[in-house]
Amino acid sequence: MITEKKKGTLSIVKIGGNIVDNPEALEAFLNDFHQLKGNKLLVHGGGVMASKMAKQLGIETKMLNGRRITDEETLKVVTMVYAGWGNKSIVASLQKIGCNAIGLSGADANTIPAIRRSPVPIDFGFAGDPDPDKTNIAFISQLIESGITPVFCAITHDGNGSLLNTNADTIAYTIAAACSEIYQTTLHYCFEKEGVLRDINDPDSLIAMMTREEYEAYKQQGIIADGMIPKLDNSFKAMINGVSQVIILHAKNLLSGKGTVLG
Rank of each mutant, 00 (worst) to 15 (best):
I2N: 11
I2K: 12
I12T: 04
N31A: 08
D32Y: 03
F33Y: 02
H34Q: 10
Q35C: 09
L36F: 12
N39S: 13
N39L: 05
L42S: 06
L42K: 00
G45M: 00
V48K: 15
M53Q: 12
K55V: 06
K55R: 14
K55E: 15
Q56K: 14
G58V: 10
I59R: 08
E60A: 12
N65C: 05
G66L: 13
R68H: 10
D71I: 01
T79M: 00
V81F: 03
Y82G: 01
L94I: 08
I97C: 09
G98S: 11
G98W: 11
C99T: 15
A101N: 06
A101T: 08
I102V: 15
S105V: 09
T111H: 06
I112L: 13
P113E: 08
R117D: 00
P119V: 04
V120H: 07
P130N: 03
P130A: 03
D133Y: 03
I137D: 04
A138V: 13
A138K: 13
S141R: 12
L143Q: 15
E145H: 01
V151Q: 06
F152R: 06
D158N: 15
S162T: 14
L163K: 10
L163G: 03
A168I: 05
D169H: 11
T170G: 02
A177W: 04
S180Q: 12
E181T: 14
T186S: 14
Y189S: 03
V196S: 11
V196L: 10
R198C: 11
D199Y: 09
I200Y: 11
Y215R: 01
K219V: 11
Q220N: 05
I223M: 00
I224V: 15
D226K: 04
M228W: 02
N234I: 02
A238H: 00
A238M: 05
M239F: 03
N241M: 07
L255G: 02
S256E: 03
L262E: 08
